[in-house]
């Protein structure tokens, strides 16, 4: 089932982060993702590329969106998909991550998709397992498929990424989405800006080669893309931000602030959104500017591309 005629795209057998990927690898994945958009829109969405392969979704953090996206991607490529629910597994009975890994390894999966609350979890599993590991989000470290799907969304809308100015706004401190996007966008030649109150900016953020703004209007001036980040409920009640109303007033995306961006600006959000906290409802629902629904569609396509690319390296 592995077609020897298909050229390899990834040099490694895992996708642990954007860090370490080369520009050809990324553009290869984006090009491949493009072709899967067409397949996903066709009446027959199914291919046999991964027939006989087993994909395990191991999600230590709940995520309807990412988990179902990987599940669909696997099924559309013909793989057998198993969703491991951590709640009912032995992990919640105190098993260590490495013991879980050896148990899973004995089941001989081909691809493990893992989401974990701790940074480095995917990397740890990749060292202990014989299969390919895809990082579906580890702590505040990386979420590579999110960055890839964002890049695919932008590229399809604006035709390019190089030379664009992208503002990433909100809880940068805790965000793996921000970290992966910063790496990917910079790699592809975009100018990246971070907009957040200082309490939500990580230490030495400027070392990523980004511009930092604490004033949202200044930060949005002339940008092509606005990426909003989700603010977790427990972080807006005083520890990092005093209240949701203050957050919305200064860092929520509304019409007034968006006016400072370039005409034709696109608004993105990795979901799930907090309406009235980080984004005003009328913007989220405005199809002229919001590409949030499109991001979800690109998510399935790019995950099919990643599964395809990893399968090409399998023997």
């Amino acid at each position: 089932m592995t077609s020897p005629s298909l050229p390899p795209i990834l040099k490694t057998s895992h996708l642990l982060g954007i860090e370490g990927l080369s520009v050809p690898e990324v553009t290869g994945l984006l090009d491949l993702g493009e072709s899967y958009v067409a397949q996903s829109r066709a009446a027959n969405k199914k291919a046999a590329l991964l027939k006989g392969r087993t994909l395990i979704n191991l999600f230590f953090e709940a995520s309807t969106r990412t988990q179902s996206s990987f599940e669909l991607a696997g099924k559309r490529l013909g793989a057998d998909v198993l969703n491991m629910s951590v709640k009912t597994s032995s992990v919640s009975k105190g098993e260590t991550l490495i013991d879980t890994a050896s148990t899973l390894n004995a089941m001989r999966p081909d691809i493990l998709v893992v989401r974990h609350q701790d940074s480095g979890a995917a990397e740890l599993l990749s060292r202990k397992l014989d299969c390919s590991v895809i990082n579906a989000g580890d702590g505040a470290h990386e979420h590579p498929t999110q960055a890839l799907l964002d890049a695919l969304t932008i590229r399809r809308r604006l035709g390019r990424i190089e030379g664009l100015t992208v503002a990433i706004c909100g809880d940068i401190l805790h965000s793996r989405v921000a970290r992966s996007n910063i790496r990917l966008l910079a790699m592809l030649g975009a100018q990246v800006r971070l907009i957040a109150p200082r309490t939500l900016l990580p230490c030495e953020a400027e070392r990523f080669g980004v511009e930092i703004f604490t004033d949202m209007k200044q930060g949005l001036a002339g940008v092509d893309i606005v990426m909003m980040l989700r603010l977790q409920l427990e972080r807006m009640t005083g520890a990092f931000v005093p209240s949701t109303r203050e957050y919305f007033r200064f860092y929520g995306l509304d019409r007034e602030k968006l006016r400072h961006a370039k005409p034709g600006v696109l608004v993105m959000h990795p979901g799930p959104m907090n309406r009235g906290v980080e984004i005003a409802s009328d913007i989220a629902d405005d199809l002229e500017v919001s590409v949030i629904a499109e991001q979800v569609e690109m998510g399935v396509a790019i995950r099919m591309a990643v599964l395809d690319a990893l399968a090409r390296g399998m023997t």
């Binding site: 009640t237 005083g238 520890a239 005093p242 209240s243 109303r245 203050e246 007033r249 200064f250």
Partner: peptide, 14 residues
């Protein structure tokens, strides 16, 4: 901090 309790910052911007 709210109520001067030293726990939760106030709405400094507003």
């Amino acid at each position: 901090t709210q109520r001067l309790a030293g726990e939760t910052m106030t709405e400094i911007g507003l």
